[in-house]
Design a protein around this nucleic acid. Structure first.
Length: 230
DNA sequence: AAGATGATTTTCT
DNA sequence: GAAAATCATCTTT
């Protein structure tokens, strides 16, 4: 199932087999990447991608592109860091029982679970696994690709590395908030394009939790400068 | 470079 | 009433 009714293509960073020192210096300085090629944002990952075990979904989301089209403009970024939250996992919001907040996690896969936390931040998750299984993937970092000036305005920051290198930073940069909770990500203005990891996947422990902190359920693209932390 | 702290409100106990 | 899947800023080393 591929959508073809999107508007025109978007620019993307120039593809390079080996990253030059100039490229690395730009990333280090937080400067926008050179743009020359074309990025196709006209396809949407189908629901069956998400209807698999959550660790697989978390790993395979690396390299895919999160897109949000809004009246102010389109923003998009490559997913470079994720975490899996599983049934029987004490850190999972759905660990105890179904509540009004976590019920979307028990529903069909391919929907957004957006929650508000610490009195001021939103975090964006993708519901994974089959209906009835309360699991999801937290998207923790993006490499900004499209709409960088819009992201900079929303974030109040110029440095590209400070736009999407954390779960609450990325929702702010992308314009994702409570109205996006329970959105169907297989259609509409908030969606994910297919993509492949362009670096080895590092597996490590999750950030910011107390229980379940030893489980290897965090994944990121090795040597990517936009990950929230090593 | 690393550690501590305040902001601010929803959600569940 | 306490904790929270965080972030920015400030202090200390």
């Amino acid at each position: 199932m591929v959508k073809t009714n999107r508007s025109n293509n978007e620019i993307r960073p120039k593809a390079r087999s080996a990253k030059s020192s100039a490229w690395k210096n730009n990333v280090r300085a937080g400067k926008p990447l050179p743009v020359t090629g074309v990025l196709n944002l006209n396809s949407t990952i189908p629901r069956d991608f998400y209807d698999r075990d959550t660790v697989t979904v978390a790993r395979e989301l690396l390299g895919c592109i999160l897109v949000h089209r809004t009246p102010e403009g389109t923003t998009a970024g490559k997913i470079v860091e994720t975490e899996a939250y599983l049934q029987g996992d004490p850190a999972c919001h759905a660990a105890r029982r179904m509540t009004p907040r976590n019920s979307v996690m028990f529903g069909p896969p391919g929907y957004a679970y957006v929650y508000f936390t610490y009195g001021m931040h939103y975090c964006f998750n993708v519901v994974s696994a089959s209906e009835g299984v309360g699991e999801a993937v937290l998207v923790r970092a993006l490499e900004p690709l499209v709409g960088i000036p819009l992201m900079q305005g929303r974030r109040g920051r110029q440095n590209t590395r400070e736009l999407c290198s954390g779960p609450a930073k990325l929702t702010q940069a992308m314009g994702i908030a409570r109205e996006h909770n329970r959105r169907d990500l297989t259609m509409g203005d908030l969606y994910i394009c297919p993509g492949d990891a362009d670096a080895p996947i590092v597996t490590t422990t999750r950030i910011g939790i107390k229980e379940g902190a030893e489980l290897p359920l965090r994944f990121y693209l090795q040597n990517n400068g936009y990950v929230s932390r090593k």
